[in-house]
Amino acid sequence: YKIYPYDSLIVTNSISVKLPKDVDRTRLERHLSPEEFQEVFGMSIEEFDRLALWKRNDLKKKALLF
């Protein structure tokens, strides 16, 4: 996945969300650098992957990456 800054990946309720063209809309968190991922989620990507799907989705919603 290509890395993008968190600010360019957050999704708000506005209709005209302009995400970069090559971003996987269903896995926005994968486009964060490991350092920024840790900062946003408070855990590593590996720890995040071990969580239940509902928990990952809940965290993504709170981080505006859903």
Results as ranks from 00 to 15, higher is better:
residue 1 Y to F: 12
residue 1 Y to H: 15
residue 1 Y to Q: 10
residue 2 K to F: 07
residue 3 I to F: 07
residue 3 I to T: 10
residue 4 Y to D: 01
residue 4 Y to A: 02
residue 5 P to S: 08
residue 5 P to I: 03
residue 5 P to N: 05
residue 6 Y to C: 02
residue 6 Y to T: 00
residue 6 Y to F: 03
residue 6 Y to N: 00
residue 7 D to T: 15
residue 7 D to S: 15
residue 7 D to M: 15
residue 8 S to Q: 15
residue 8 S to K: 13
residue 8 S to N: 09
residue 10 I to C: 07
residue 11 V to A: 08
residue 13 N to M: 08
residue 13 N to L: 08
residue 13 N to P: 10
residue 15 I to C: 15
residue 16 S to I: 10
residue 16 S to N: 14
residue 16 S to G: 13
residue 16 S to A: 12
residue 16 S to D: 15
residue 17 V to P: 13
residue 17 V to I: 11
residue 17 V to Q: 15
residue 18 K to C: 15
residue 19 L to N: 05
residue 19 L to Y: 15
residue 22 D to N: 07
residue 22 D to W: 06
residue 23 V to C: 04
residue 23 V to P: 02
residue 24 D to T: 04
residue 25 R to T: 10
residue 26 T to A: 13
residue 26 T to I: 06
residue 27 R to D: 03
residue 27 R to Q: 11
residue 27 R to H: 15
residue 28 L to C: 02
residue 29 E to H: 02
residue 30 R to V: 05
residue 32 L to D: 00
residue 32 L to V: 03
residue 33 S to R: 05
residue 33 S to E: 04
residue 34 P to D: 10
residue 34 P to C: 09
residue 34 P to Y: 11
residue 35 E to A: 11
residue 36 E to Q: 11
residue 36 E to K: 05
residue 36 E to C: 06
residue 36 E to H: 05
residue 36 E to M: 05
residue 37 F to R: 00
residue 37 F to G: 00
residue 38 Q to I: 10
residue 38 Q to R: 12
residue 39 E to N: 12
residue 39 E to I: 15
residue 39 E to G: 10
residue 39 E to K: 15
residue 40 V to M: 04
residue 40 V to G: 01
residue 40 V to R: 05
residue 41 F to R: 00
residue 41 F to L: 05
residue 42 G to H: 12
residue 44 S to R: 12
residue 44 S to F: 08
residue 44 S to T: 15
residue 45 I to F: 09
residue 46 E to V: 13
residue 46 E to S: 12
residue 48 F to S: 00
residue 48 F to C: 01
residue 48 F to R: 00
residue 49 D to Q: 08
residue 49 D to C: 07
residue 49 D to E: 11
residue 49 D to P: 01
residue 50 R to V: 12
residue 50 R to I: 12
residue 52 A to H: 11
residue 52 A to Y: 07
residue 53 L to C: 15
residue 53 L to I: 10
residue 53 L to H: 10
residue 54 W to P: 11
residue 54 W to D: 14
residue 54 W to S: 12
residue 54 W to E: 13
residue 55 K to P: 03
residue 57 N to E: 09
residue 57 N to M: 11
residue 58 D to P: 02
residue 58 D to C: 14
residue 58 D to H: 12
residue 59 L to K: 05
residue 59 L to W: 03
residue 59 L to P: 00
residue 59 L to V: 03
residue 60 K to T: 02
residue 60 K to V: 03
residue 61 K to E: 07
residue 61 K to T: 08
residue 61 K to Y: 08
residue 62 K to N: 09
residue 62 K to A: 11
residue 63 A to S: 06
residue 65 L to V: 03
residue 65 L to H: 01
residue 65 L to W: 01
residue 66 F to C: 13
residue 66 F to W: 14
